[in-house]
Amino acid sequence: MNIGSKIYYELNTGNVLVNTGERSGDVIMTTTEQDFISYVQLSERVPNTVGMIQLEYGEYAADYAEGGIIARIDLESMEPMFTYPDPIDPETPQEPRPALSKQVEDLVQENLLLKAQNSALSERADFVEDVIAEMAAKVYQ
C-alpha cells in the first residue's frame, strides 16, 4: 500500500505544522484524530484551527528531489508553497513559492498557447501580404 503525505497547516496563516511524509509497504492510513495524538505539534493545537490536505503518493516527487520543502499552503488555491535551497547561498531563507513542477507545467501550457498564437499571426500576415500583392498587381495593370 502507498500513502501520500498529509500536510497539516494553520488555518489562519497557511504555515505548515506537520508533514507526515509518504509511506509505503505494510502501512495503514491514520485518522486525523490519531495524528493529533501522535504528533506533538498537533497535540498542542486546537483541532478546529488546523487544516489538512492529503497528497497523492509520489505527488511533487520532482520538487522533493530538488530539495523543496512545503513551507506553507496557499489559502486561496489550497496548493502547497515550497521553499528551495539557493544553490549559491543555501543558508539564505527563501520565500515560499509554487512548486517548480507546477511552474514548469504552466510555462509549457503558456508556450503552447504562444506558439499557436504566433502561427495564427504568421498565417494572417501571409494572407495580408497576398492581398496587398493582388491589389498592387491590379493597380499596375
Score class of each variant (00 low, 15 high):
Pro93Ile: 08
Pro93Asn: 04
Pro93Ser: 06
Pro93Trp: 06
Pro93Arg: 05
Gln94Val: 04
Gln94Pro: 00
Gln94Ser: 07
Gln94Met: 09
Gln94Asp: 01
Glu95Asp: 11
Glu95Ala: 06
Glu95Trp: 03
Glu95Cys: 02
Glu95His: 05
Glu95Ile: 14
Pro96Phe: 00
Pro96Cys: 01
Pro96Met: 05
Arg97Ala: 02
Arg97Cys: 04
Arg97Pro: 00
Pro98Ser: 03
Pro98Tyr: 05
Pro98Lys: 07
Pro98Asn: 05
Pro98Thr: 03
Ala99His: 02
Ala99Cys: 09
Ala99Thr: 01
Ala99Arg: 05
Leu100Arg: 07
Leu100Cys: 02
Leu100Ile: 03
Leu100Pro: 00
Ser101Thr: 01
Ser101Phe: 00
Ser101Tyr: 00
Ser101Gln: 03
Lys102Gln: 13
Lys102His: 14
Lys102Pro: 04
Lys102Phe: 13
Gln103Gly: 01
Gln103Ser: 03
Gln103Glu: 10
Gln103Tyr: 00
Gln103Arg: 03
Val104Pro: 00
Val104Leu: 06
Glu105Met: 05
Glu105Pro: 02
Glu105Phe: 04
Glu105Val: 01
Asp106Phe: 11
Asp106Glu: 14
Asp106His: 11
Asp106Pro: 05
Asp106Leu: 15
Asp106Val: 09
Leu107Tyr: 07
Leu107Ser: 06
Leu107Asn: 11
Val108Ile: 15
Val108Leu: 13
Val108Phe: 08
Val108Ser: 06
Val108Tyr: 10
Gln109Leu: 15
Gln109Ile: 11
Glu110Trp: 06
Asn111Gly: 11
Asn111Val: 09
Leu112Lys: 14
Leu112Met: 11
Leu113Gly: 07
Leu113Ala: 12
Leu113Lys: 12
Leu114Ser: 08
Leu114Thr: 09
Ala116Ile: 01
Ala116Asp: 07
Ala116Ser: 04
Gln117Trp: 03
Gln117Asp: 13
Gln117Pro: 02
Gln117Cys: 05
Asn118His: 11
Asn118Gly: 14
Asn118Met: 09
Asn118Ser: 15
Asn118Gln: 15
Asn118Phe: 11
Ser119Met: 02
Ser119Thr: 09
Ser119Leu: 04
Ser119His: 09
Ser119Arg: 08
Ala120Lys: 12
Ala120Ser: 12
Ala120Ile: 09
Leu121Glu: 14
Leu121Arg: 15
Leu121Ser: 14
Leu121Pro: 05
Ser122Leu: 05
Ser122Gln: 12
Ser122Lys: 12
Ser122Gly: 07
Glu123Phe: 03
Glu123Ile: 11
Arg124Val: 02
Arg124Ile: 06
Arg124Phe: 05
Arg124Pro: 01
Arg124Leu: 12
Ala125Ser: 14
Asp126Ile: 09
Asp126Trp: 05
Asp126Ala: 12
Phe127Tyr: 15
Phe127Arg: 13
Phe127Asp: 13
Val128Ser: 02
Val128His: 03
Val128Ala: 07
Val128Ile: 15
Val128Pro: 00
Glu129Trp: 08
Glu129Gln: 11
Glu129Tyr: 12
Asp130Pro: 01
Asp130Ile: 03
Asp130Ser: 13
Val131Leu: 14
Val131His: 07
Val131Asp: 06
Val131Ile: 15
Val131Thr: 10
Ile132Leu: 10
Ile132Glu: 07
